[in-house]
Every structure is written in C-alpha cells, then in structure tokens.
Computed example of a mutant assay.
Amino acid sequence: MTYGSETWSLTMGLIRRLRVTQRAMERAMLGVSLRDRIRNVEIRRRTKVTDIAQRVAKLKWQWAGHIVRRKDGRWGLKVLEWQPRTGKRSVGRPPTRWIDDIKRVAGSRWIQAAQNRGTWNSLQKTDRCPAVDVYRLM
C-alpha cells in the first residue's frame, strides 16, 4: 500500500482513504465483520500493525532527506528547487504540494537542516507530519 508514497502530497482526504483501507484489511486478517461492532482500537491491538499515515509520513521524511543529501546531479533536487515562470495563478486555494508538510515541520530552510542527518532525524522524531496529527484529533 505504501509503494511510491514518498512522492505523494499528504492531504486529509488521502490519509482518510489510506486509514479506511488499512482498517478493512485488518478486519479481513482477523475475520471480523463491521457487524461484529469491534472498535478500531481493539482491532489495532490485536493485529499490532502500525498506522499507515504515520508510516507514509516517515517514508516521505526519509526520502526528502535522502534527495537533499544526494550529490550526483540527478533531477530530484532540481525539481524541488524549480520555480515556475511568470503567469496567471488559478482561482481558489492552491492545491497541497509535496513540500508543504515538510516546510511546516522543518521551516523554510529545511534543505539546510536536511544536510545534517542527525538534525534531520531529530526533527522527524519530535514533530510528525501535521496532516497526520490533525487527522488524529478528529
């Protein structure tokens, strides 16, 4: 389920869909139906599976650090630093970008923070993806 998740923009809708799918898979593993009315917390306790949203956020964080530290001239870092040419913006709120949740946690100078692996890992452990944290409160 997490194949390629490092490149996803983590939106609330995506996180919700991932969690619903994970819960359905866990229920199938245990042979439990929705009609049995067993709480999700109990199912998670029985399966001992980590939350998919936290896993995806961790994979994305690790991938971002890897891309920034890479020095072989591949296009990954060039894409992160690319700025579009001038032009008209579309109407409405801009869509969530890949980099938005990383900037929320590490700040606008996240590329410099990612150069130091120890600092980058400590940021990951103290602050998780804000979209994951907000959804947990709901």
Score class of each variant (00 low, 15 high):
42 E>Y: 09
15 I>S: 00
93 R>G: 08
25 M>H: 13
126 T>G: 09
66 H>E: 05
12 M>H: 11
27 R>T: 01
74 R>D: 15
109 R>S: 15
59 L>C: 08
46 R>F: 01
136 R>C: 03
90 S>K: 15
89 R>A: 04
39 R>I: 02
12 M>G: 13
112 Q>F: 06
1 M>V: 15
40 N>K: 03
138 M>F: 00
53 A>S: 14
100 D>Q: 09
119 T>G: 06
132 V>E: 02
119 T>Q: 11
28 A>Q: 08
67 I>R: 14
5 S>T: 09
56 V>M: 11
23 R>V: 01
134 V>K: 12
45 R>F: 02
137 L>Y: 11
118 G>H: 13
47 T>E: 05
20 V>D: 05
1 M>E: 13
111 I>T: 12
106 A>H: 01
94 P>K: 07
84 P>S: 07
114 A>M: 01
70 R>G: 12
19 R>Y: 05
37 R>M: 06
10 L>F: 06
88 K>S: 13
49 V>G: 02
66 H>S: 07
18 L>Y: 01
135 Y>K: 05
75 W>Y: 11
117 R>T: 03
34 L>K: 14
83 Q>R: 05
105 V>R: 08
96 T>F: 02
44 R>G: 04
108 S>Y: 12
101 D>S: 08
130 P>Q: 05
109 R>Q: 15
5 S>N: 14
116 N>A: 10
38 I>P: 04
50 T>N: 13
75 W>D: 15
116 N>T: 10
134 V>H: 09
72 D>W: 02
62 Q>H: 11
77 L>Q: 00
42 E>C: 12
88 K>T: 12
62 Q>A: 13
58 K>Q: 13
75 W>H: 14
112 Q>R: 10
14 L>Q: 12
77 L>W: 00
83 Q>K: 05
131 A>L: 04
128 R>E: 14
72 D>Y: 01
72 D>T: 08
62 Q>E: 13
43 I>N: 04
37 R>A: 09
10 L>I: 09
108 S>E: 15
78 K>T: 03
113 A>C: 07
84 P>R: 10
64 A>G: 05
138 M>S: 11
119 T>L: 12
115 Q>T: 06
59 L>T: 07
79 V>P: 02
76 G>K: 03
99 I>S: 09
38 I>G: 03
119 T>I: 12
68 V>T: 04
85 R>D: 08
49 V>A: 01
97 R>D: 09
17 R>G: 10
35 R>L: 12
24 A>I: 15
15 I>E: 04
12 M>P: 09
102 I>D: 02
13 G>V: 01
99 I>L: 11
59 L>R: 05
132 V>N: 00
93 R>F: 06
40 N>V: 05
117 R>E: 07
123 L>G: 00
7 T>G: 10
45 R>W: 03
124 Q>Y: 10
114 A>F: 04
65 G>Y: 03
102 I>F: 03
52 I>K: 04
42 E>P: 06
89 R>T: 07
48 K>E: 07
31 G>W: 03
114 A>H: 01
6 E>K: 09
56 V>Y: 03
128 R>D: 15
102 I>G: 00
65 G>N: 05
66 H>M: 04
35 R>M: 12
65 G>W: 06
81 E>W: 08
135 Y>G: 02
70 R>S: 15
92 G>D: 03
